[in-house]
Every structure is written in structure tokens, then in C-alpha cells.
Design a protein around this nucleic acid. Structure first.
Length: 196
DNA sequence: TATAAGATTTACT
DNA sequence: GTAAATCTTATAT
């Protein structure tokens, strides 16, 4: 019943969070939460480069109850609550004590469309998971998944879909104007689907 | 202790 | 285009 794929060749312990953020585009993201299996292809990511990145929650080495999970070894989930109502899902990367994380900003739903639609108040397909908080709502992700291993029976990566490198564009991150010059860094990666 | 703003989304004017 | 939803963290009294 529960399918597990631990064959992902991606190295989440790498310190090159920028490379990983680009590499994650095209991977299937699966969840098995509340008895429901959902998946989608990752189509948008943002890299947050630890203590040297003003836009990161771990900037300057900040370590709080919320951010402590980022300091663990790469390959786990960092889920946090924001704006008083939304959950955002990140994948922690890098070795222990290096608080890198990659925000998953959008996926293309594949498995469990009906479930996602229910969780998303019957929104149309295109609006199911095209934003970081929408994706969490559709997949059923909340604080219970914080710190969960990527590759467990709860959250795992599936196979990687082949995407033309030319269809992945980099640009500045969203909603980080407070980060000064770091807000301009091209740490955001978007898969532009030419068939749209 | 109080206030402000946030890695956002939605509904309404 | 603007506002409201209202939890966590940081900064200022």
C-alpha cells in the first residue's frame, strides 16, 4: 500500500544549497499523511543559505525553537507556521550545524488529486499547489511533519522527471525585501512549462 | 510587557 | 488594489 522510494540519487548533505535547489526541480514529492497518499512534481524552489543569508531564519546563527531543526543533518523537513495561518515546507540540507534549507514553493499535483482538491476547498487544478502555503494545505503538511526524515514513509522523494535546463529560470526570491542586498540574489528557481 | 513585521493566501471594494 | 486572517520572533520600551 505505502510506496517507499529511497533511491533518490540527490545528496542532501551537500553544502551547495544553490545547486540542490536547482536540482530538486523535477523530483516527485510524496506524502502519506492522515492515511492519504499524495504526490506532485516540484516546480519551484528557493535556497536559503544559512547563517550568511539575511533572508534566512538562521541568519547570523539565530537558533530558536522554530529554527533549531535547520541545524540538524540534511535530509529532513523544516515546517514552520507564519502569518498566523500558513505552513511552509522546506527541505533541510547540508551537514550537521550548517542550517541550509530549501523552500518548496510549488508542485504539479499528480497522485491524490481528489484528496488535494478536498483539502483545498475544491479549487481548480492549477491553483491546488502553486504556492508554498497552498502546497502544504494540499499535501496535508503541518507542524507534525517538522523534523520528519525525507525518505521516511511520511515524506519522500520519487523519481526525477527530465526537464530541459533552458526551462528552469533563476531569479530573486519572493517576499524577502527585508533582507537588503541578499534579497536580490538569484536563489529562486522556477520550472517554466512551455506547454502552458 | 508591548509592538511590529513576516519565506502568504483569500475575499472583498 | 487593499485588508484581514492572527502565530512566532525580534526589537524597543
Amino acid at each position: 500500500m505505502v510506496m517507499i522510494s529511497n533511491e533518490s540519487p540527490i545528496d542532501l548533505l551537500s553544502e551547495d544549497v544553490l545547486h540542490l535547489a536547482r536540482e530538486l526541480i523535477g523530483y516527485e514529492l510524496h506524502t502519506f499523511i492522515h492515511g492519504r497518499h499524495c504526490s506532485g512534481i516540484i516546480s519551484e524552489t528557493e535556497a536559503y543559505a544559512g547563517v550568511h543569508d539575511r533572508a534566512s531564519h538562521a541568519w547570523g546563527g539565530r537558533r530558536t525553537e522554530r529554527t533549531k531543526v535547520m541545524y540538524k543533518k540534511g535530509g529532513i523537513a523544516y515546517v514552520y507556521f507564519t502569518y498566523g495561518m500558513h505552513y511552509l515546507f522546506n527541505i533541510v540540507t547540508g551537514p550537521e550545524e550548517v542550517p541550509h534549507a530549501i523552500l518548496i514553493r510549488a508542485i504539479w499535483p499528480q497522485i491524490g488529486l481528489e484528496i488535494m482538491q478536498q483539502r483545498r476547498k475544491n479549487k481548480p487544478f492549477q491553483l491546488l499547489a502553486n504556492g508554498p502555503a497552498k502546497l502544504c494545505q494540499a499535501m496535508g503538511i503541518d507542524l507534525q511533519q517538522n523534523g520528519v526524515e525525507i525518505g521516511s514513509s511520511i515524506i519522500w522523494l520519487g523519481r526525477k522527471h527530465v526537464i530541459e535546463p533552458a526551462n528552469i529560470i533563476a531569479g530573486p526570491r519572493v517576499g524577502v525585501d527585508y533582507a537588503g542586498e541578499d534579497a536580490l540574489l538569484p536563489y529562486r528557481f522556477v520550472w517554466v512549462n512551455p506547454s502552458l
